[in-house]
Design a protein around this nucleic acid. Structure first.
Lengths: 352, 352
DNA sequence: ATGAAAGCGCTAACAC
DNA sequence: GTGTTAGCGCTTTCAT
């Protein structure tokens, strides 16, 4: 009866189990188990026999069952706030590659920018994964810190006490961008803000303020805007209204949306206004004009996050090595930035 | 000892199990199980008590354990050939949404355009999912048909005997594109071919040939090319070498790559050559010039695939209803297509 | 080095 | 209605 129970149609032969392998090679299941998992602790010749049987029977260990006893699923959850955001493609690709190489499986979850969903999924799926990677978590610091006690976690672009993280150093890139714009003669730089719940957003804005001071230019802020293409129209209008000649956008998605609106309104980029994006996502190089942006090692961030997480999982209770990594970004100048319009240009004043 | 076994650090209280809930509400585990899964078959008042206990203990069913007995994991595998291809973003988003709504989890797998990896993952993970969605499978027809007997499957853009499918009707769109180009005076249309293992690729080419005949224009073919941006350079060169004034590319990714190369070579689009892409992916609307393309309901394809799969899973042995769905595409004309260059234009000859 | 046996958390007969 | 009893496939003591 059992075959039917397992949901296999009557005739279809169900996958071989460890018991089948053991029977076929005349040993106990425990021996078969050891032979396959702990090759050292079994007689070489016996092991040989077992391995052959396994191969012949096309034996594939049932990871569910294994997880039940061992408590380890060899599965890692990767949470992103919006699957359709190209920024995450890179992350996902990086995690996927690295996980596969380590024999792990990836559980991809879209949290839809919702902290509740994020928390809910993390709990609901808790028994199904060994650890999680949070790309741009929307949880509060308190919440995140608490969570990290229950679940092995690595956060990407989020530095919080007690939570391992991979940080893409966009703030430093922002400083370069401000320098770049200042050197082009821009006197006012407006920041097109992303979601207020985004940790990165605050960091970028603060970096902008800091370096604006350094370069003696004025910093303004408009927004917040959704980190999406469609929000670009409103952002572009706001920038224009602010009367600035230069803008740094929270991310490329928003910047690309702004580009369209500027064209619509007959505003020339970079003739009338210069625009800098963040991340260098797919599309930043071929939009019109190609976007000057802060190139982030996105895929590597994913890979690094996985490495950190797996290292922790394996070191099994060892106090761990690296708990944080910082990845550098760099300014990639393309065609969306240029000299400030003549009417507004003043001679470059002494720098701070 | 058991708590430690499960991998929970000494002090940390492990998640409540069904046994805990049962004990707390003074019933047998089986009753608790029923109360939670099959509310109808249990005394209302008892159920109330059990549900409260579950809530208080913060009980979360262990899906691994559940899968072990029931054989159902409530997890669906989604296989894509390349995660970084924006075409799949839409698919993934669609499947994710629909799966979540049905209380299922998505297992995302990148097969890296490899049929071996595709087959391997499908088998290795077999016990971990109830069914799979194959987006652009690279498996042979034989293989796929055989597989469909073992695993509940829905293929996207792949029609094979015995395999349920969701088909995005790009071929019909190609016919429209050919009509569009013919009406613009183009006499020769070259197809920039995608991977030879791609089923869609053949279908698109055949549609092109068929309708070229209909419109009395010449059809040529160059390639194959990888369905990636970087392959666009070679494709653009090949098209130019073929001396055609119009091109339909296997997909937008390739077309976008071609755009860059054309600009590099001083070839004006659409002045010198018209270009049509396929799929209308992210970026097709903001590249330069914006791409005329065949808009595909990508996200809906994902949703539909999930619906079909889940319907089959639930109808549990019922011979099933819909085994195939066809989703229409339409030509979206943007700035990458225009009249054929004067030197080549001939008066529009009678149409077939 | 190997086997026997006891579970992991849950579900599904089968009684009562 | 509800409790009892077997397992699902695997790992892991504990003997031998």
């Amino acid at each position: 009866m059992s075959p039917q129970l397992r949901g296999y149609p009557d005739g279809v032969d169900r996958p071989a189990t460890l018991a089948d392998v053991a029977a076929a090679s005349g040993v106990a299941t425990s021996t078969a188990s050891r032979a396959l998992a702990n090759p050292g602790r079994v007689n070489a010749i016996t092991r040989e026999r077992i391995e052959r049987a396994a191969r012949e029977l096309n034996y594939i260990p049932n990871s569910q069952a294994r997880a039940l006893t061992s408590g380890r699923t060899r599965c890692i959850a990767v949470l992103v706030s919006d699957i359709t955001n190209p920024f995450y493609f890179g992350i996902i690709r990086g995690t996927q590659l690295q996980l596969k190489a380590a024999g792990y499986t990836q559980l991809l979850v879209d949290t839809e920018e919702s902290d509740e969903l994020e928390d809910g999924m993390l709990h609901k799926l808790r028994p199904s994964f060994d650890g999680a990677i949070l790309a741009a978590s929307r949880l509060t610091d308190r919440h995140l810190t608490a969570l990290a006690e229950e679940v092995p976690l690595v956060a990407i672009n989020r530095q919080t006490r007690g939570v391992a993280n991979v940080f893409i150093d966009t703030p430093t890139g922002v400083e370069q961008a401000v320098g770049h714009l200042a050197s082009l003669g821009h006197r006012t730089i407006v920041y097109a803000s992303g979601p207020e719940t985004s940790w990165s957003n605050e960091r970028r804005w603060r970096a902008l303020v800091r370096s604006a001071e350094h370069y003696q230019v004025e910093a303004q802020r408009v927004g917040p805007f959704a980190p999406r293409q469609y929000a670009g129209a409103a952002a572009a209008d706001a920038v224009l209204h602010a009367g600035a000649t230069a803008c740094i956008a929270f991310n490329d998605l928003l910047a690309i949306g702004m580009l369209a609106r500027f064209r619509e309104r007959g505003v020339d980029v970079p003739g009338d206004v210069s625009l800098v994006g963040c991340d260098d996502i797919f599309g930043a190089d071929f939009c019109n004009p190609p976007l000057t942006t802060l190139t982030a090692p996105i895929e590597q961030a994913g890979r690094t996050a996985v490495s950190m997480l797996l290292a922790r999982l394996d070191e099994n209770a060892t106090p761990v090595g690296r708990q944080a990594a910082t990845l550098p970004t760099h300014l990639t100048v393309r065609a969306s930035t240029g000299p400030a319009p003549a009417s507004q240009t003043t001679s470059t004043k002494g720098r701070g």
